[in-house]
Simulated assay, not measured.
Amino acid sequence: MYLELTVCKVTSFADIDTESSFFFIGRTDEELSLVCLTEDTPENTVEREDGWRGFRIQGVLDFSLIGILSKISAVLAGNKIGIFAVSTYNTDYILVKEENFSRALEVLGSAGYEIV
């Protein structure tokens, strides 16, 4: 079973469930963004796009490693699969639309990536 994720813009971070098992927040001078479990999407959402699924690049990635996300996104782009990428200190997460998720895993497996 894979998590159902939503990418959205919110008016404030006050309503975000910070006890949730999965969320990313971002702030710029233009917006407040949130990636969260669809079931945890707050009421103060201005815009939202549901139907995302994600996978994690396995292992802790050293900052000196170059091109990991680029290579994976190139494989997916070559197969007409768009991505939404988010990163933590340790690793990267790649989100794809639900209808492309199985195919994304298949093409990455065919390209030599181990899917666990």
Rank of each mutant, 00 (worst) to 15 (best):
M1F: 05
M1C: 07
Y2G: 11
L3Y: 07
L3S: 07
E4M: 03
E4D: 15
E4G: 02
T6F: 05
T6V: 15
T6W: 01
V7Y: 12
C8M: 14
K9N: 13
K9Q: 15
V10T: 04
T11G: 13
S12P: 09
S12Q: 07
F13M: 13
F13E: 08
A14K: 12
D15Q: 15
D15K: 14
I16R: 08
I16W: 06
T18E: 13
E19I: 01
E19R: 13
S20P: 05
S21D: 14
F23N: 10
F23D: 03
F23L: 10
F24T: 04
G26L: 03
G26P: 01
E30N: 13
E31V: 11
E31P: 06
S33P: 06
S33R: 02
S33L: 12
S33I: 12
V35W: 03
V35F: 05
C36Q: 06
C36S: 10
L37N: 11
L37Y: 05
L37A: 10
T38V: 04
E39H: 01
E39D: 10
D40H: 14
D40R: 12
N44H: 04
T45K: 03
T45H: 01
V46T: 14
V46Y: 02
E47R: 02
E47M: 09
E49A: 09
R53E: 05
R53N: 09
F55L: 11
F55I: 09
I57T: 11
I57N: 00
Q58S: 10
V60R: 10
L61R: 00
D62F: 00
D62C: 01
D62T: 02
F63T: 07
F63S: 10
F63R: 06
S64G: 09
S64F: 02
L65A: 09
L65I: 13
I66W: 00
I66D: 00
I68G: 00
I68T: 14
S70H: 09
K71H: 12
I72M: 15
I72Q: 06
I72N: 01
I72R: 01
S73P: 11
S73N: 12
S73L: 07
V75K: 01
L76C: 07
G78A: 09
G78Q: 12
G78N: 15
G78T: 00
N79D: 14
I81L: 10
G82L: 07
I83M: 11
F84E: 00
F84R: 01
F84A: 11
A85K: 01
V86S: 11
T88F: 08
Y89L: 15
Y89G: 05
N90M: 05
T91M: 05
T91H: 02
D92H: 02
Y93H: 14
Y93M: 03
Y93R: 02
I94E: 01
L95W: 03
V96D: 08
K97L: 13
K97I: 11
E98G: 03
N100L: 04
N100S: 14
S102R: 04
R103L: 15
A104N: 06
L105V: 08
V107K: 06
S110W: 00
A111N: 04
G112K: 04
G112H: 05
Y113P: 08
Y113L: 09
Y113N: 12
E114R: 12
